[in-house]
């Protein structure tokens, strides 16, 4: 079992969701986040005082999958979130020790699916 965490552009979310659904991946957690990487920020101006904003709005998607689904998940995200410009985001993959479904108490692969 692996957790795939993807940080993507907000405007890519709909394409990414569609690509994941097409790859039979229907379960995810999505949150709006702020972050900085290689992309430069921008400036805002409030009555003449200039603020530099370097934490840009991003979307974070968390998906926990069985090992056989790791590759399709990553392929789906990369193909749908890539614009080729700085700021497209990153994907992290990490091992998951255990999964429990609260309603039934199922564990492991069964709880994921």
């Amino acid at each position: 079992m692996k957790m795939v965490i993807a940080i993507i552009r907000p405007e890519s979310l709909d394409n990414v969701k569609q690509a994941l659904f097409n790859a039979e991946i229907h379960k995810m957690t999505v949150s709006p986040v702020r972050g900085c990487g290689q992309q430069k920020g921008y400036t805002e101006n409030y009555r003449g005082s200039i603020k530099t904003i370097n934490l840009l709005p991003k979307i974070r998607i968390e998906i926990v999958v069985n090992d056989s689904f790791v590759k399709p998940t990553i392929d789906a995200i990369i193909s749908s979130a890539r614009s080729g410009n700085i700021g497209d985001g990153k994907i992290f993959v990490m091992p998951v020790e255990e999964v429990y479904r609260i309603r039934t108490g199922e564990t492991g692969s069964e709880a994921i699916g």
């Binding site: 552009r9 702020r34 400036t43 101006n45 934490l55």
Partner: peptide, 28 residues
């Protein structure tokens, strides 16, 4: 197109209507 994606408020006016925590941090 990239300005349209980022939003008209920031690209046309340099402002954010609903700034959140990150806007409190001024990193010059």
């Amino acid at each position: 197109e990239k300005d349209e994606m980022q939003g008209m408020d920031i690209t046309q006016h340099g402002e954010d209507a609903y700034p959140d925590f990150s806007s409190d941090q001024s990193i010059a």
